[in-house]
Design a protein around this nucleic acid. Sequence first.
DNA 1: CTTCAACCTTGTGCTATAGTAGGTTTATCG
DNA 2: CGATAAACCTACTATAGCACAAGGTTGAAG
Lengths: 136, 136
Amino acid sequence: MMISTRGRYALRVMLDLAMDGTGTYVPLDSIARREGISEKYLESIIVCLSRAGLVKALRGKGGGYRLTRKPEEYPIGEILRLTEKSLAPVTCLEEGMDCPQAESCPTLPLWQGLDRVIEEYLMGRTLADLLPPEKQ
Amino acid sequence: MMISTRGRYALRVMLDLAMDGTGTYVPLDSIARREGISEKYLESIIVCLSRAGLVKALRGKGGGYRLTRKPEEYPIGEILRLTEKSLAPVTCLEEGMDCPQAESCPTLPLWQGLDRVIEEYLMGRTLADLLPPEKQ
DNA sequence: CTTCAACCTTGTGCTATAGTAGGTTTATCG
DNA sequence: CGATAAACCTACTATAGCACAAGGTTGAAG
């Protein structure tokens, strides 16, 4: 629940790719070195992003990853949702968790409201918002 | 990070006490039965609330717990902060975590913003907001 | 002086997180 | 063609936090 290293690393990888800007393929080991993150661990993270089409992968020599859209077309929430199992602040709201007492629960509306606030914040910002001004 | 059963149970206990309304001491085992939660586990939770003065405890026969303020004087965030180790959405923001790269981290402002939004939401609502209309 | 309730300490099973390790496939370059 | 470089895939592991459970101790009322 909420944001672990997986989501944070995913964001940093995407940001790293966005900083590159050249549209060429960037190999993962160079990203790992720059960001100071275990390459093997990053692998398991970027696979999610690749399968979902947020980045395009190219194998073999000269291969790597690159963005498939412009930075301003990546809502932060989308990146996090793919790499975290859930962004819900409480387990009650997680998928496949329909609580039998949901109808009468006096606290459920509170959590739903919190979830909405978080969702709006994360979907209302994009990768581009995290780039340094000169890279805009 | 974020809200586990500890915080959720704490809220339900406080709500249970607020529902009582009579100002008399309510024993924990009756709360546990009503809420369907393990009494022993609740014990470890309510101790935090008691030590912080959110509830007053009375030992011995006829003892139990009662609120020390009116429901509208308990911000939800205060209850959760006491029972959860942290409400921060990422570890970066947890106490005693001053990251050496904080200055140059491009994602830190994002997390700080998210933290503020959550904080405002949770501190802007009180126990009273969760009571059914007729109990107001 | 018994009863009931809070208080305190300790232990335990489970699950998720944050990685490691090692091998397989695929593309490029000399 | 073959070496190299990269993504891809499977499986394993150590650690920590969560959600309790068990048992005994202290203290207030009747």
